[in-house]
């Protein structure tokens, strides 16, 4: 039971981390109609920047400065890249961000090398907060949780209370209204892109040392991320939230459990099947083996049942 509880809590945390990325991605998509393929690359940059800053100064400096740097970079990319390809349509924009993701990955290899960098949890937070059934729960995880929750509250306040937030909200529910409002739309785009990407950077800062900071982390995170936004329904914040938590918890749970089809058959009272021939692994796969496949499987199943995603309303 304790293992189960721990898996759920860890899954929740992973889900929150996913949503920190998915929320920015969704905001950008809703407003600009472009799915930022490089979103997870900015997440990775956040982690690397934080590593660099914490090796010069300390973790807290990274926590504040790295997201800002990432946001600034994002705004520059929007201004001088995305805006240029905008007139060629959404496919060109998607291609551009895809090329950007490719380039950022190579850039990271260029500057920090192929191997993981030793980006560590700050010592102040490196102690067990409490322990249940002999398993420690680290203070850093609680800290991550707090940051994620703070970020959502901040985002919510921003959306509800500020002018920019109101415009974004208007755009979320009625995408075509924005142009009629007559605001400075290009500047809004730059702001939201920079802001959304900065959130991904923040997730990178607190997630980079929790996971591993290495050049492959963007690809790993990115593909899950796209599953989440499509699963939740492109453009739906709530859908993205539900999908993040669901996939976060499911993936963590899968790793925590074992047992195979053979076990199942045996427990049902039948003889253990002969594992021969092609695809014989089917009898011996554990849920942990399947964890990487699961999000994609879920996506495909959902798309068969409900092509527009969990809470999606928008045609693309």
């Amino acid at each position: 039971m304790d293992t189960f509880a721990f898996a759920v809590v860890n899954g929740l945390l992973y889900g929150m981390l996913l949503f920190m990325l998915a929320s920015g991605l969704t905001l950008i998509f809703s407003l600009m109609g472009v799915l930022n393929f490089a979103h997870a690359s900015f997440f990775m940059l956040g982690a690397y920047f934080a590593y660099q800053l914490s090796s010069i100064g300390n973790f807290w400096m990274g926590l504040v400065l790295a997201p800002l740097l990432v946001g600034l970079l994002g705004a520059t990319v929007e201004r001088y890249g995305l805006r240029v390809v905008h007139r060629h349509g959404h496919v060109a924009e998607l291609l551009f961000t895809f090329g950007l993701a490719y380039l950022i990955e190579e850039l990271v290899r260029l500057v920090w090398g192929r191997q993981p960098v030793p980006y560590r949890i700050p010592e102040v937070l490196d102690f067990p907060l409490f322990s249940i059934g002999g398993i420690d729960y680290s203070a850093y995880r609680a800290f991550m949780f707090a940051i994620a929750v703070l970020m959502f509250l901040g985002l919510l306040a921003l959306l509800k209370r500020t002018r920019v937030g109101l415009m974004v909200q208007a755009a979320l529910s009625h995408p075509d209204v924005l142009w009629a409002l007559g605001h400075n739309v290009p500047r809004l785009f730059m702001l939201v892109f920079g802001g959304g990407v900065a959130l991904a950077g923040l997730a990178g800062v607190i997630g980079g040392n929790y996971l591993v900071t290495e050049p492959g982390m963007a690809h790993q995170m990115g593909t899950i991320l796209f599953v989440i936004v499509v699963f939740g329904g492109l453009g739906s914040l709530l859908g993205a939230f539900l999908a993040s938590i669901l996939i976060g918890i499911l993936q963590t749970l899968m790793v925590a459990f074992d047992g195979t089809l053979t076990d199942l058959v045996v427990s049902l009272g039948a003889a253990a099947p002969q594992a021969t021939g092609p695809f014989r692994e089917i009898w011996t796969i554990t849920p942990a083996n399947l964890a990487p496949v699961l999000p994609y499987l879920l996506l495909v199943v959902l798309l068969i049942v409900r092509p527009r995603g969990l809470l999606g309303t928008r045609e693309t």
Partner: peptide, 17 residues
């Protein structure tokens, strides 16, 4: 079933699967 961005993401999901 979908074109555009959704198709691109589905194709990515299929490939990962």
């Amino acid at each position: 079933r979908r074109a555009g961005t959704t198709f691109a993401m589905i194709s990515l999901g299929m490939a990962e699967l």
